[in-house]
């Protein structure tokens, strides 16, 4: 043993291998089960993927660093369930690339935000949080209302996720830009396709209150309004336990 270790130290390469061995093998033993962890995730047949507009909104959420102050993970603790709603299930974030569970609540959890407030509330809140909640310390996001949403590369966004296992259909990928426009323009001819491809319950509204323009605000509010509403699994589970 000591002789072995002495040789190990003499050759720097051996030492490198030892460090890799100890750390990586140790790490791998723990990490390996996680490569099959999707098997342990609950099934939710009713779950749908994010629409192109919601995907764009999610990317704005990431871009502005919202995850630094808002979690999207309700823990299995009584006070959290009472404050925010049914605790989060793994299946609810199965298409989230990356996940946005967060680790800090400077603001409240957003896992069940969808449908809690009106679109108009969200728009007013994002433009100036203190106009709606006087004590808020959230930044103002006025530029979301000013910036046109870029939809040109949304097909690429969906195609990349499709290659990584998110079940987008070819029709969804091909119509991504049109669907993004249609979801925020209920009166346009593009609106119908959104319901066809993503389900009748998909929100199709002028989220920013201006039907004529497709803004970043449209995308972000569309995303916020679908948080926790891609599947009913969490609500079903809570209801089943209540009985």
């Amino acid at each position: 043993m000591p002789n072995f270790h002495r040789k190990l130290e003499r050759s720097a390469i051996g030492f490198v291998l030892a460090i890799i061995g100890v750390s990586a093998i140790g790490g791998f033993v723990e990490i390996a089960p996680l490569f099959t962890i999707q098997e342990t995730v609950e099934k939710a047949p009713d779950m749908r993927v994010y629409t192109p507009l919601e995907t764009a909104g999610r990317n704005i959420y990431i871009r502005e660093g919202c995850y630094a102050c808002h979690s999207q993970m309700i823990r299995t603790l009584r006070d959290e369930v009472e404050r925010y709603g049914p605790y989060s299930l793994a299946v609810e974030s199965q298409y989230d690339k990356p996940m946005l569970w967060g680790s800090k609540r400077t603001g409240p959890d957003l896992a069940r935000l969808g449908g809690k407030y009106s679109d108009a509330w969200h728009v007013a809140h994002l433009v100036n949080p203190r106009a709606v909640v006087p004590q808020s310390v959230m930044p103002k996001y006025g530029w979301l209302m000013r910036n046109e949403l870029s939809t040109a590369d949304l097909s690429l966004h969906l195609a990349a996720q499709r290659r990584l296992g998110v079940p987008y259909t070819e029709a969804q990928v091909a119509n991504a830009s049109a669907d993004a426009y249609g979801q925020a323009s209920p009166d346009s001819s593009y609106a119908g396709g959104v319901g066809e491809r993503y389900g009748a319950e998909t929100n199709v509204r002028a989220f920013d209150g201006e039907p004529g323009r497709l803004t970043e605000m449209d995308a972000l509010v569309a995303y916020l309004q679908v948080l926790g509403r891609l599947t009913d699994a969490a609500h079903r589970q809570t209801a089943a336990k209540g009985k």
């Binding site: 990490i31 199965q94 298409y95 989230d96 990356p98 996940m99 590369d153 990584l164």
Partner: peptide, 20 residues
């Protein structure tokens, strides 16, 4: 998403991504 774009999607998703 393309070689001309800064945006990428991680290969992990959901709970697996959380753990990684």
């Amino acid at each position: 998403i393309s070689l001309g774009s800064a945006k990428s999607y991680t290969v992990y998703s959901g709970v697996q991504d959380a753990m990684v």
